[in-house]
Amino acid sequence: MHGMRRRGLSVTAQQPSEEKLAKLRQALEDYAEGAVRNPLIDHEAEEAKADVRARALRLLDERARSRHELHERLVKLEFAEPVIEDVLDDLTGVGLINDEAFATEWVRQRHARRGKSARALNQELIRKGIAPAIREQALEQIDDDDEEEMAWKLAVKKAKSIKHVPEDRAERDKALRRIVGVLARRGFNGGMSLNLARRALDERCEELGTA
């Protein structure tokens, strides 16, 4: 997933757009009108779906979610599994559930705003039930240069918290561990993290020494 060429992936906002919500409501209204005219429609089944659909829409109003996330939340609310699947199929059909768009935007935002590495983001997408092929495509937004640049920014930022040049080896190692820890918590490669942390610490010490 690292080193792969960057693709021009479309960006979809985490919050569902008004256009999407309007599209869904219109589709549901059209369906309801058709159900009234069609005596073969199972009205009892449609009533069961209505409750699940309303709850799913409230969850989507809060933020975009993967299909797996919605499924898990609806199961916890003790809705019937077959009804949940039917509703999720409906929402997928009108574009309110789109795991590809969700994963792409999740990676873009979490890398840019939280400084998360591709490895950490991959684990997050796994927990959200995103399929391997979709995860790989979304993570192609991040290449090796992106990873190193983000890690370096984080290392420099943490090094700025050091207020004086370490007096001995023990104090220096302590400062170094703090910088490495910031990068490790975001899932960056250990070897790269150590090298960048040393470089950031050296630059900070030089800065302090000439201040």
Rank of each mutant, 00 (worst) to 15 (best):
L57M: 06
L21T: 09
A80Y: 13
E136V: 00
A103I: 00
Q141P: 05
D202Q: 12
K76A: 06
S161R: 12
M1I: 11
K158E: 15
E85C: 02
E78R: 15
K163E: 12
N122A: 10
A175M: 15
K160T: 04
A211N: 08
I97E: 10
R198H: 14
L154S: 08
F102N: 04
E33A: 12
F188A: 13
S66R: 01
D61A: 15
E124Q: 14
A184S: 14
R198G: 08
E19M: 09
L91E: 00
A56R: 00
L57F: 01
D90Y: 04
A155R: 10
M4G: 13
A56L: 03
D168H: 03
Q15R: 15
H164I: 10
P132S: 08
R113S: 05
Y31D: 12
L9Q: 02
A80V: 11
K157C: 12
E203Q: 12
V182L: 07
G129P: 12
M4Y: 13
D51N: 04
H43N: 10
A13T: 11
Q15F: 14
A112P: 07
L28C: 06
K76M: 03
K153W: 05
R53T: 00
A27P: 04
K23T: 07
A64P: 04
D173G: 04
A200P: 07
G129L: 00
D89S: 02
R5P: 09
R199W: 05
I142M: 02
G129Q: 04
A80L: 13
R185N: 10
E18N: 03
R177F: 07
Q26C: 02
D89I: 01
V87C: 00
V165W: 08
K76C: 01
